Amino acid sequence: MLTLLTATGARPAAWAICERLMAAQDYAGPVRWLVVDDGPEAQPIAFERAGWTVEVIRPVPIWQPGQNTQARNLLAGLAVIDDDSRLAVIEDDDWYSPDWLSHVDQQLDLAELVGERRARYYNVEFRRGRQLSNTEHASLCSSAMRGRAIAAFRAACLVRPKFIDLELWRRHPFRFLFDGGRVVGIKGLPGRAGIGMGHRDDFTGQADRDGALLSLWVGEDAELYA
């Protein structure tokens, strides 16, 4: 079984896309999807798939504009996840290829902490994409873990850094990074804003007014971001 952990709230458009991307996954095993939603209104959840269960956690107090509750929300999910789980972090506003879950499930046989390096960010509001050069860590959206790495994830969240992924990958030595372009960090969707550089007005990258870069990266799913 894979366990998925998603922190969300006040992002109904992004969440609806996330549901579609998870419905398209080719992973054939059972999945437990933990959704931690601290938005003022509960995120509408329409997801149904045989072999998958969805559990919603509503932490309090609810998120207020200007707050960063990511660590609090992830800890709320981790409180009901055992260290012997196989855990993939799924962020609600990012794109995942249909073979993402099956791929990380295989990679978790190699190491306790796995992830995709050389992250891709794409801001759909500015129509701008950027290939990053990170080779020593993966973004949180493209990280998966088991065993002692889950304990390291809890510890990383407890210190509440702004960028939890950097803290996690710094802490845990039993790790494996791979290439593949199976994840794109999508920025600029409607709703609650993110905290990473891809969300900022000064985000730099390749201009993509005709959408060719986005189509290259996500294929026919580019229509989800039109």
Rank of each mutant, 00 (worst) to 15 (best):
S139R: 08
T204G: 10
E19N: 03
Q67H: 11
G219D: 09
D165V: 05
A50W: 00
S85H: 13
I62E: 04
S133D: 15
E167I: 06
Y27F: 15
E41V: 14
A79I: 07
G115M: 08
E112I: 06
A14W: 02
A10V: 04
A155P: 00
P173R: 09
L2P: 01
D84C: 04
A71G: 10
V36G: 04
K162C: 05
R120Q: 13
A76P: 02
V56R: 14
D37I: 01
N73W: 02
L87N: 07
L87P: 03
V124S: 04
N134S: 08
R171D: 10
V124D: 03
W63K: 03
A138H: 05
R182Q: 15
A76L: 04
L132W: 06
A88M: 09
L158D: 11
H199V: 05
Y225A: 08
A138R: 04
R118T: 14
P40Q: 13
A222E: 04
A149N: 07
F176G: 13
F163A: 11
D165F: 01
R127K: 14
G211E: 08
R200W: 06
V80L: 10
I150P: 00
L214E: 10
A88L: 06
I57H: 02
T8I: 14
T69G: 01
G147W: 05
N123G: 04
L87Y: 10
A7M: 02
A151L: 08
D83W: 01
Q67E: 15
C141Y: 08
R130P: 00
R148W: 05
W217K: 04
N68R: 12
A88Y: 00
M197G: 09
A155Y: 02
I164G: 01
G188K: 03
G205H: 10
G115E: 03
V159P: 01
W169C: 11
D83G: 09
Q131K: 10
R170E: 13
G51V: 13
Q25W: 03
H137N: 07
S142R: 08
F153H: 08
R170C: 12
Y96V: 13
W95H: 12
R32T: 15
A207Q: 13
T135R: 12
Q131G: 03
A193G: 06
P30L: 06
Q67N: 11
V114Y: 03
V89Q: 02
W95R: 02
P98W: 04
R170Q: 14
L108D: 03
Q107C: 13
C141I: 11
F203I: 13
K162R: 12
G115P: 02
L189Q: 12
R128P: 00
M197W: 07
R127V: 07
R175I: 07
C157F: 01
R118K: 14
A23T: 09
I81M: 04
R146W: 02
D210C: 07
L101G: 01
P44Y: 05
L177I: 09
D165I: 05
W169F: 11
G211P: 04
E91K: 00
V183H: 10
Q64E: 14
T8F: 01
P59E: 10
V184I: 14
G115T: 08
F47E: 08
Y225H: 10
W169G: 05
G77F: 09
D210N: 12
I62P: 00
E136Y: 07
D38C: 06
S85Y: 07
M197N: 11
